[in-house]
Amino acid sequence: MKPLSCISIDDNPLFTRKLEAFTEGLDWISIIDSYDNPIQGATAVVNSNPDVLFLDIEMPYIDGEYLVDWIKPRLQSMEKQPRIIVISSVSEPPEELLANSDGFINKSDVTDPESFEKKLREILG
């Protein structure tokens, strides 16, 4: 079975490396690219259409909520749209963002590969 392809958009390179390390040992999911620039990341999502998008909320220039609003219409015509998982340190993500995403993971809950995988499986089913 082919692993789920993922793109991560997060302005924190240390957290991005953590996600990459936590998914390295998993055979069912793979981060194919990571972006600290939200505009480049959004363009990559539209161009490569990954299975999953990991998205931070608080980033310079453009926040995650705006990015989802920009990406969603561009993905409507695609046969398969990526699942959007918001990963952020905010304790209360905006309701509209939650409504437009498939799940939320608080960065403080991403402490080890096992807990991260458990959260992913809860969201992705």
Rank of each mutant, 00 (worst) to 15 (best):
D112K: 07
K119D: 01
M78L: 15
S101R: 10
G103M: 13
K72A: 11
E95N: 13
E95D: 15
L98S: 14
D69K: 11
E114Y: 02
S115D: 04
D56S: 12
M59P: 07
N47P: 01
T111V: 14
L75Y: 00
R121W: 02
L124V: 08
L124C: 08
V110Y: 04
E92F: 13
S101C: 15
F104V: 11
E122N: 07
S48G: 01
Y66A: 06
K119N: 08
V90I: 15
T111Y: 02
E65D: 07
W70T: 02
M59C: 09
S88K: 12
R121D: 01
S108M: 07
I71K: 00
E95G: 09
S77V: 03
E65T: 11
S91P: 00
P73K: 00
V68H: 00
K118S: 09
A99L: 15
E92K: 14
P113I: 03
V90Q: 13
G64M: 04
V52K: 02
V68W: 00
L120N: 03
L53T: 08
F54P: 09
W70V: 05
N106Q: 13
G64K: 06
D69M: 01
I123F: 06
P82I: 06
E95R: 15
E122T: 05
S48W: 09
P50N: 11
K80E: 10
D102I: 05
E92L: 11
E58P: 01
R121I: 15
E114Q: 07
K119H: 09
L55T: 13
K119A: 11
V68K: 00
P73N: 02
S89D: 14
S115Q: 09
S89L: 04
I85H: 13
A99D: 15
P94Q: 14
E58Y: 03
E79P: 02
P82G: 09
P93D: 12
K119E: 05
N100T: 04
K72D: 06
I87Q: 10
D69P: 00
P94Y: 07
E114K: 07
P113T: 02
M59L: 10
L55C: 14
G103E: 11
V52C: 02
G103Y: 14
K118Q: 12
S115L: 07
K72L: 05
T111W: 01
E117A: 13
L67Y: 00
Q76G: 00
I123D: 05
W70S: 01
D102E: 15
D56F: 05
K107F: 04
I105D: 11
P94E: 13
F116G: 04
S108E: 07
F54T: 06
I123G: 05
S91C: 01
K118M: 02
P113H: 05
